[in-house]
Amino acid sequence: MSFLEECWEEREEKAYKQIFGDTGLGIYPLSTEIFNRMNADAVDPRWLTHGVFKCPPTENRKTWAYITSGMSNPWEAESPEDYSGQGVEFLMETNEEEMWAVEVLQTLMAYNLLLFAGKIGDYPPLDYGNRVPLTLSAGIKTMMFTQPINFPKSFSIKSGRVDLLQVVGITPAELEFAKKASSDELKELIVTNTGGLFTSKDRVSVV
C-alpha cells in the first residue's frame, strides 16, 4: 500500500469513525457536472475521487453529520508534512437527514478545489470566517465557515494535520451583521440562540 493509500484509509476508516461513528452506506463522489456548472476549463481526474459521507446520529450525537473526504489527500507527498494535502475537510450538521446537505458540501468542495488549483482567479482557498453565496432557501442564502463546537477542530493522520471547517447556512440579515461585526460574533449569536451550528432551510434569523 502506498503512502497516499495508507493515509486515505487512516482518515476514512479510523479518524472519521472515531469522530463521526457510522459514516453511512458509502461516499457521494463529485461529478463532472458539478464542475461544469462552475465553468471549469478542465477537471483533474483525482478530484472525482473526492466526496461526502452522510453520518447518522449516534448515542452521543442527535444530529446528522456530513463530512467531505479528499481535500486532505497527500497527493504529492511521500512523507509527513505539517498539513495533509490541502489540510482541510468541510463539515455540516442537520437535525434531520437531508440530501441537500451532501449537495451543498459537494459544491463547496468543488469550488475550493478550483480555488486551490488557481482556476478561479487569484483567490485563496476557503477558510474560517469566509462567507460564500449559495442559496438553500428563501431565508438561507449564504454559507459561512467556522470552527465546529460539537466536533474536534482538527485531527491528525500520518501525512499531517487536517482542520475541520464547519459550514452553517445564514440569513441575509445575519450576513449583514457578520460584515459589520465578524463571522465569529455571528457564530456566537447562532450558538446562543439555537444551541448549535445546525443548518436548516427554515431557521429563523438570530439578528
Rank of each mutant, 00 (worst) to 15 (best):
L165D: 02
D184A: 09
P56V: 04
K119S: 10
C55A: 09
L134P: 06
I27Q: 12
M1I: 12
S182F: 00
S205V: 02
K180T: 11
S200T: 00
P80E: 11
F35H: 06
N150M: 10
E33A: 13
A110N: 08
G129A: 07
V167M: 01
G21C: 02
W100C: 03
A77W: 07
L189Y: 03
S79H: 13
M143C: 11
L175Q: 14
G160L: 06
L164F: 08
K180L: 13
S79Q: 12
L30D: 08
N130W: 02
I149R: 01
L114E: 11
Y16K: 05
G24Y: 04
C7N: 13
A138L: 13
Y83K: 09
K141G: 03
W75V: 13
M143P: 01
P133D: 08
L115S: 06
E89G: 02
A42Y: 15
D41F: 11
V132K: 06
N60C: 13
E78L: 13
T199P: 01
F155N: 01
G160I: 02
Q166W: 01
N36F: 15
G129E: 06
T63I: 12
I19H: 08
N39A: 15
K179V: 10
F3L: 05
Y66P: 01
D163G: 07
E59M: 09
M1L: 14
L48I: 03
D44P: 09
R46Q: 15
P172F: 02
S182H: 00
A178P: 02
I140H: 01
D22M: 08
G139L: 01
P124V: 07
E103G: 01
K62M: 13
A173W: 14
F90P: 01
Y66K: 03
A65C: 13
Q106A: 05
Y28F: 15
L114S: 09
A178T: 00
G26K: 06
M92C: 09
S156L: 11
T49N: 14
E97D: 14
K54H: 13
V168P: 00
G24K: 06
I120K: 14
E174K: 00
E96G: 05
R61T: 09
A40S: 12
R37N: 15
F53H: 11
E98R: 07
G121Q: 12
P57I: 04
Q86S: 12
K62W: 08
P74I: 04
N112I: 00
G121H: 12
L165W: 00
S79C: 12
Y66E: 03
E176P: 03
W47R: 04
L186M: 06
G195T: 02
S182T: 00
C55H: 04
V104R: 03
A42R: 15
S79T: 11
K119Q: 15
S72Q: 11
L108M: 13
F116D: 15
L48K: 05
S137G: 05
L4D: 10
E59R: 14
D41H: 11
G24R: 08
V102M: 09
T199H: 02
